[in-house]
Computed example of a mutant assay.
Amino acid sequence: MKNILLPTDFSENAYNAAKYAVQLFSNEECTFFLLNTYTPVLYDNEYLVYNSNYPTLTEIYQDKSKKGLERVLRRIKRNFKNEKHYFEKISSFNLLNDEMKDIVAEKEIDLIVMGTKGATGAEEILFGTHTVHAIKRARCPLLAIPAHYEYKPPKEILFPTDYEGEIPALLNIMEELATAHSSTIHILHVYFGVDLTSNQASRKKALSITFKDLAHHFYNINGKSVTRAIYDFQEENEIDMLTMVNNKHSFFENLLFTPVVNEIGFNVKVPFLVIPSKKRK
């Protein structure tokens, strides 16, 4: 059984991500953990003096959080009846990313699925603040769902890689998704007139072995930036999911976390699966 974490702020964007998750795993037994965090940091003067006749501001936020989670759960169950799916609600007075870190460890979470929408600031070309921080700190695979994205099975998965770093064991989540949906994996390597090193060639061979039971193709793109190569590939091919490994010091970090004002506005229009290079403690 898979354990899936679904953070929610009760927005349509967050619900859209939950919708995607329950449809993606419609044929699997899963426990979905619906998480909402609240941090009432601004206290009105009337709450500074304790009065047992009135709820505290924290209690008010807690009540709002629990009722919100109940509404989300009713909506999911009403629209997606599935006897294989189980749900737990978690309402926590904590910062979102701190709580996610604790839950991933405590509940042995296999995947985080959260909504996102394109940011306009140069430092957040891809996502909003919460999602960027979650990706940076994720200890398990994270699937970001663009706002308004309508579910479709991930039949075509794009996997850009620089063949640097060891192949993470956590890559199995992509293998499982590809197997469940009879997907084809498109492995994209961008280079600049330099042949693969022996280590890179070895990792490419290892990927071929890893995906031996799945339909997969290798592509070499020369003379383009990584963002341009990914953008052009998606324009020329029908892609349903983008997957990348978050290797420290790799092109991934430059792509995600460095301002790319002069780049093409690398907007992810399909679900984006980010896999940590290893499960961090």
Rank of each mutant, 00 (worst) to 15 (best):
E123S: 07
R137S: 10
I135N: 04
E108H: 08
K107F: 10
E150R: 10
G115Q: 04
V113G: 03
R137D: 12
K136R: 15
T131F: 01
A144G: 03
D110C: 02
L111D: 09
E123R: 12
H133V: 05
E99L: 12
A119H: 03
G115N: 11
L143A: 07
P141T: 10
A119N: 10
R137G: 00
P141M: 05
P153S: 04
R139T: 11
K117Y: 02
K107Q: 15
K107E: 14
T120S: 04
E106M: 14
I145K: 07
H130Y: 10
P146T: 02
K136H: 05
A134T: 15
L111R: 14
Y151V: 09
L143I: 08
I112A: 07
V113K: 05
D110Q: 04
Y149C: 12
G121P: 01
I135V: 15
P146V: 07
A147G: 01
P153A: 05
G115S: 08
F127S: 04
L143C: 03
V132L: 15
P153W: 00
P153G: 00
T129S: 14
E99P: 07
A134G: 06
G118S: 07
E99C: 14
K117N: 00
P141N: 07
I109W: 15
L142W: 03
I112Q: 12
T116F: 02
A119G: 04
D110H: 02
K101A: 12
L126I: 06
I103Y: 15
K152L: 02
K152W: 06
K101S: 03
K136G: 05
E106N: 14
T131C: 06
T129P: 02
V113R: 10
I157Y: 00
N97G: 01
T120Y: 01
K117T: 06
E156Q: 08
L126N: 01
M100C: 12
K117W: 01
Y151F: 13
I145G: 00
Y149L: 13
V104W: 09
C140L: 11
I157H: 00
L111Y: 05
R137V: 05
P146N: 11
G128N: 08
I112D: 04
H130G: 07
P153T: 07
A119F: 00
G115H: 13
E106S: 13
T120V: 01
K107H: 14
T116N: 04
A105S: 15
E150P: 02
I157F: 00
M100Y: 13
I135E: 04
H133W: 09
A122W: 03
D98M: 08
G121V: 07
A138M: 14
N97C: 07
A119M: 06
L143Q: 03
G128L: 11
V132E: 09
A147N: 08
D98A: 10
E124L: 11
V104M: 14
H133A: 06
A147D: 06
H148Q: 04
D102T: 13
H130S: 11
